[in-house]
Amino acid sequence: MNSALLDTLLEAKTAKRPTALVTDLEGGAQALVIDGAEHGELALDDQVRGGIERALRRDKGETVESAGKRLFIQPFAPPKRMILVGAVHIAQSLAPMAKLTGYDVVIVDPRQAFTSRERFPGAALNHDWPDDALTALAPDRRTAVVTLTHDPKLDDPALSVALRSDAFYIGALGSTRTHGRRLERLREAGFGDNDFARIHGPIGLDIGAVSPAEIAISIMGEVTRTLHAPAEDGK
């Protein structure tokens, strides 16, 4: 690979544009495809372009055969996102864990006292009301939404927007009883069983988590399981 191509690749990655690097495994010739525009010395055909689209959609590299050549397609999809509603103690553990796992993290909480810089160094903070914040953030199928406030005034508006989105994971903190009351309120707001099946509540894998960091681990585990095995998860 030449440095100029790598610099172009890293620029596109930083700008969060859908990018793929195609390498001829025989001679090492390469092409860079950014938003569908091709750069580099390797000519691509429609079959390879199809492979690029697939690799970006699945966020998974693959090798394809084209004109007698074996090509490796490496996708650089924009990062997964995690939206945390509630700048609470658990969020302080969950935000760096999610970042470490490769998510862009946004913490939504209109209560200024909770979202101090000291509590969340380096995190993206959003002080809008959760429904406005989530509508603006527009969760897609690579976004996880986690509500942590316990406060219906904050959690419910966030869940209402999340349930109308393609978010691959929606989780809500709270006991079975709290979750039951939450579903009653959401039912009054017009949501039904199909929507409820999408909400992980009580949130997290059952690993006996007690401390905020342990609960964050159980949530991160459940998000990861849902990302990789949506069919098995039953949600």
């Binding site: 760096p96 970042k99 470490l100 490769g102 810089r117 160094p121 380096g122 995190a123």
Partner: peptide, 11 residues
């Protein structure tokens, strides 16, 4: 404060 603490973790 800068983005540093989170960037270091994912470096």
């Amino acid at each position: 404060m800068s983005e540093k603490p989170y960037e270091a973790i994912a470096e």
